[in-house]
């Protein structure tokens, strides 16, 4: 574990949670990011007539470029909901598209399908419903009862340390599965204590907060939160 990242082992594979919210498998030179939601502002404008600052794709790719520079992966896995919808993938601004192509250059690029972007998208790269590498299975939405070693996204988990300000996007980790935070700029979050999310994980689980460094904290036990009496 270097100064700011958090290293752990999942199903026998060494992994590193980066403070940016990306996951690195050093042995595979694989970088995984989830829920980029590229093109969200375009979709909002198209669907709701809300004109958000149209810079989120640029901002997300800027951050991804930094992670790619720092880790030089041979393979990138985008873990679903990479585009806010398939039309947003079509409508990507030419400059953003060129940027994405440049990032893909010289490496394997895998788009895992998500609920927002099911089916082939308009960009280069391989599309898969799920993928297994080094004992880890990458899929967009966690499956209850999945075999150990599942890596998923979808829920945009967030958690905070009481007394230390706002909640931050976080990884959730237990002995058999990992849930990634959303990497996209315009993505909100679901509290890690929310029953929908908390019930996915074992009682003994960690939240790994993102930010200027990755900070692991215990996730409050499933029996204490969200309990309905």
């Amino acid at each position: 574990m270097n100064g700011t990242a958090f290293s752990f082992t999942l199903n026998g594979t060494a992994a590193v949670a980066l403070p940016s919210g990306a996951l690195l498998l050093p042995s595979e030179r694989l970088l995984c990011i989830s829920d980029l939601h590229l093109g969200k502002s375009e979709r909002m404008a198209r669907r709701r007539g809300v004109m958000l600052p149209p810079y989120e794709t640029r901002a997300t790719l800027d951050r991804l470029a930094l992670d790619l520079d720092a880790t030089q992966p041979a393979c990138v896995v985008a873990l679903g909901d990479s585009f806010d919808d398939l039309a947003a993938s079509e409508a990507l601004d030419p400059e953003d598209r060129a940027r994405l192509v440049a990032l893909q250059d010289g490496r394997r690029w895998i788009w895992i399908e998500g609920n927002h972007d099911a089916g082939p998208n308009a960009q280069d790269g391989e599309g898969h419903a799920s993928l297994t590498v080094a004992g880890l299975t990458f899929r967009h939405i966690a499956e209850p009862g999945a075999a150990p070693g599942e890596v998923s996204g979808h829920y945009h988990p967030k958690f905070g340390l009481p007394g230390f300000g706002d909640r931050r996007p976080c990884f959730l980790l237990d002995a058999s599965r990992l849930v990634l935070p959303a990497y996209g700029t315009y993505t909100g979050g679901l509290d890690a204590r929310d029953p929908a999310l908390r019930s996915l994980l074992a009682d003994r689980a960690l939240a790994i907060l993102t930010g200027s460094r990755a900070i692991p904290v215990p996730l409050p036990g499933a029996q204490r939160v969200g309990q309905r009496v």
Binding site: A59, H156, T185, L190, D194
Partner: peptide, 20 residues
């Protein structure tokens, strides 16, 4: 946020505008 449809904070919009 309504149910599980996560939305994001306006802080992000602010940061994005400041930067871009």
């Amino acid at each position: 946020k309504t149910g599980r449809q996560a939305t994001f904070s306006t802080d992000i919009l602010y940061d994005t505008l400041v930067k871009y």
